[in-house]
Design a protein around this nucleic acid. Structure first.
Length: 428
DNA sequence: AATCCACAGGAAGCCCGGGAAC
DNA sequence: GTTCCCGGGCTTCCTGTGGATT
């Protein structure tokens, strides 16, 4: 990763990429529907977060001791995606930094997204650099040297440093809890500065993977962000819509409908905003100046289709082949089919493309996976005398899915691929 | 009530690639 | 650089089973 890119993840103080959006700002201004589309994007942090007051208050209550020069307790924030965890934490941090200017002890917040910065080394290097040790290379030093560099850099003067580790579960998953262990006991060695950690996690269970000592020190304060319900989502959308859209372009039922759709999907505000934005784009594309219910429904379908396309595209070849067989059977016979029928079709497909077929046992597992992904529907049923099987049906559009399968990995070309593969194997 | 179909789905083990440890 | 280990994909073998049919 380059430095420019990494800056975004660290730097809270700088406003959203002003320069790059400037180019499009003028274009946006002339749109009949949108006023500022940015407001609807996930990266946008609003000044106010409806229905998160109590959580924000909790975070603030803990962090306020920073202003008195004490070390705030470490905080763990839990919540599903799109529940406003990151936004709330960022909001509080910004306020904290601003407020601390009036006090003698400065506070600094460093934001790190652990999905991107996912090893102990990278986290430490990033922190060290953020505190002025530009000489730390992005790779190469022993980890303890980087740790020392970070340590020295932080301790140069008196201050309170809050380290915000977003998606902290990813960090632990990929590289263990050493980072957290080191960070959590750094205070005992520091003379001037104080460090406190805010961990943000989607996964409530992730502390199970931690060393008990780390767990207790990190989880001094735990704050849970529950999913939004439909009413709350409506308020959020309302608030953003006022900024994002021109006046009077949204019909009354648009926002409630978006909220209802998103509430069904685990109260994900991100999804709700995405839906609203897409609905706007749908209306825009059809040259209309009004967004109505129909556009929302179409947006919902579009988002769903995008998801499916993405999932199908990244499926392994064998799964694609199985899925293709399901579509084939559905088109040739009926929408509902049994495992055996799919398997027979599958073997036929394999034969025509020259692939080695998997066993039925394996194929049933693949079907199961497709079921998990929501691409097919499979229910175990019993047909009495005629056995126990799964009833399988496709739960995505036939034609589009088929196109996706054929376009990228091209079952026609599987032949060539496997030949090339077996040649490779021979050479070894 | 017994039978029996057409699988479901668990258990064990093979193979292979990749990453950690030596 | 080896060696070791682990996890994922896969096969083989297996036992289990809901309910129409006998």
């Amino acid at each position: 990763m380059t430095m420019e890119e990494s800056k975004d993840y660290l730097d809270l103080s700088e406003p959203e990429d002003e320069q790059s959006s400037q180019i499009f700002e003028d274009l946006l201004d002339v749109e009949p529907i949108f006023d500022s589309k940015e407001v609807l994007r996930p990266a946008y942090t609003p000044d106010e977060l409806p229905h998160r007051n109590s959580q924000i208050q909790e975070v603030a209550t803990v962090l306020v001791s920073a202003l008195r020069g004490d070390t705030p307790s470490n905080i763990l924030i839990y919540g599903k995606t799109g529940t406003g965890k990151t936004a709330s934490a960022k909001l509080v941090s910004q306020d904290l930094e601003t407020a601390s200017q009036k006090f003698e002890v400065p506070c600094e917040v460093q934001y790190i997204n652990c999905e991107v910065v996912d090893t102990q080394y990278r986290v430490l290097a990033k922190l060290a650099r953020a505190f002025g040790r530009e000489d730390v290379p992005m790779t190469g030093w022993p980890t303890d040297r980087v740790y020392d560099a970070f340590f020295d850099a932080v301790d140069t003067r008196e201050r309170v440093v809050v380290i915000m580790l977003d998606e902290i579960d990813k960090l632990v998953e990929k590289s263990g809890d050493d980072t957290l262990y080191n960070l959590s006991r750094v205070n005992s060695d520091l003379d001037n500065a104080r460090v406190s950690i805010i961990g943000i996690s989607n996964d409530v269970q992730f502390t199970d993977m931690l060393d008990p000592r780390v767990k207790s020190s990190l989880g001094e304060e735990e704050i849970v962000f529950p999913p939004y319900d439909a009413n709350q989502l409506r308020d959020i959308l309302q608030q953003r819509a006022e900024m994002a859209f021109q006046e009077n372009v949204l019909e009354d039922e648009v926002i409630p409908l978006c909220a209802a759709f998103a509430a069904k999907e685990h109260g994900d505000a991100r999804r709700a905003l995405d839906l609203l934005r897409t609905a706007g784009e749908v209306a825009e594309r059809s040259q209309l100046e009004i967004v109505n219910e129909e556009h929302v429904r179409e947006a919902q379908e579009r988002i769903e289709l995008n998801r499916v396309v993405e999932v199908v595209r990244t499926l392994p070849t064998q799964s694609k082949t199985v899925l293709y067989s399901v579509i084939e059977f559905a088109e040739e016979h009926s929408d509902k089919m049994t495992t055996g029928e799919v398997y027979n079709t599958y073997k036929r497909v394999c034969q025509t493309t020259g692939m080695d077929p998997l066993t039925q046992r394996r194929v049933t597992d693949l079907i199961d996976e497709l079921d998990m992904l929501g691409i097919v529907n499979s229910v175990v049923i019993s047909k009495g005398r005629y056995g126990r099987t799964r009833e399988i049906s496709l739960s995505v559009p036939h034609q589009e899915t088929k196109e996706v399968i054929l376009e990228e990995s091209r079952l026609d070309d599987v032949d060539v691929d496997t030949v090339a593969q077996s040649k490779l194997n021979e050479e070894r």
